[in-house]
Design a protein around this nucleic acid. Structure first.
Length: 271
DNA sequence: ATCCCCACCTGGCCGC
DNA sequence: TGCGGCCAGGTGGGGA
């Protein structure tokens, strides 16, 4: 489900409701997510939510009790955070309930590829410390980062941009859409991109991510924000999941790159 | 150091 | 209707 825009929309939908609110109680329904839901999570009880941010595809909630600590959430493929009224009964795939005074926040995850962990430090956290630059910050859109970081990299451009340790937040769909819009073949070696191509691709990625956030993200099958609202950016897809090219009507090709599917138009996106 | 591939898990869809 | 096979927004780890 969730690439950068979807995660940002979840953050946007919970931010105002839980900031400065106190967590009353934690209820754990199961343990075996990608990272087990540990007993440390009970430290959340009686702490106060200070701040919520997105970093790559991670949701980071800063909590205040004696000293600050962090709740780190990754949604995997099917994770969601959902507001529920008090005393609703547990639904299938609910794993964790964070109870506030007037509502509950539920972590639900069908495939259990996500996780919810606690850490005292962000910069030492094994997941967060590995993340690359955020494409919505650091002037990523000027293309210089992509150009400079890729000069010696003999990897397909699509695979390179999916590497979260280089750029954090881009996922399979948005990279495909960006390559289609810039008429770049996903198999081009990233070191072969010209500076102008790096500029175009970077700008296009940022444009797509920001447009998607404005539309509430993309809802394929089951994505929803914490208020149960679906996004509509999936209606803007030009290549992902398509049979024919929306520009030239050629048959869209579907290939695998590093085990992930890639859709592209062999005519518009010639190598 | 890099790169590729697989496993992790559940459910939906397609074809027989 | 049922069952097998394949696919899905992600990622860490192990082997080459």
């Amino acid at each position: 489900m969730p690439e950068l825009p979807e995660v940002q929309c979840v953050v946007n939908s919970i931010k105002d409701k839980i900031e400065n609110k106190k967590i009353k109680k934690i209820v754990r329904f199961s343990k075996n997510l990608r990272e087990p839901l540990s007993n440390d999570l009970f430290k959340l009880e009686n702490s106060t939510v200070k701040k919520i941010i997105r970093r790559g595809k991670y949701i980071i909630i800063t909590l205040e009790s004696n000293k600050d600590f962090y709740l780190i959430v990754h949604l995997g493929m099917t994770g969601s955070l959902l507001f529920k009224e008090k005393n609703q009964k547990k639904e299938k795939h609910d794993h964790l309930k964070i109870e506030f005074e007037n509502f509950d926040l539920i972590y639900n995850d069908i495939r259990k590829f996500g996780f919810v962990i606690i850490d005292d430090s962000l910069k030492d956290n094994k997941y967060i410390k590995k993340l690359g630059v955020d494409p919505l910050k650091n002037s990523f859109e000027n293309g210089e980062f992509l150009f400079k970081s890729s000069r010696d990299k003999n990897r397909d451009v699509k695979v390179f941009l999916l590497d979260q340790s280089i750029v954090a937040g881009i996922g399979n769909i948005y990279i495909m859409e960006a390559l289609f819009l810039t008429k770049l073949n996903p198999k081009i070696k990233v070191k072969d991109l010209t500076f102008i191509e790096c500029v175009n691709l970077s700008k296009t990625l940022v444009f797509l991510l920001e447009e998607s956030i404005k539309l509430g993200g993309s809802s394929i099958s089951d994505y929803k924000d914490a208020d149960n609202k679906k996004g509509s950016f999936q209606d803007k897809f030009l290549i992902y999941g398509k049979k024919t090219c929306s520009i030239c009507l050629s048959e869209v090709e579907k290939i695998k790159q590093n085990g992930r599917s890639t859709y592209f138009c062999p005519v518009c996106q010639k190598l």
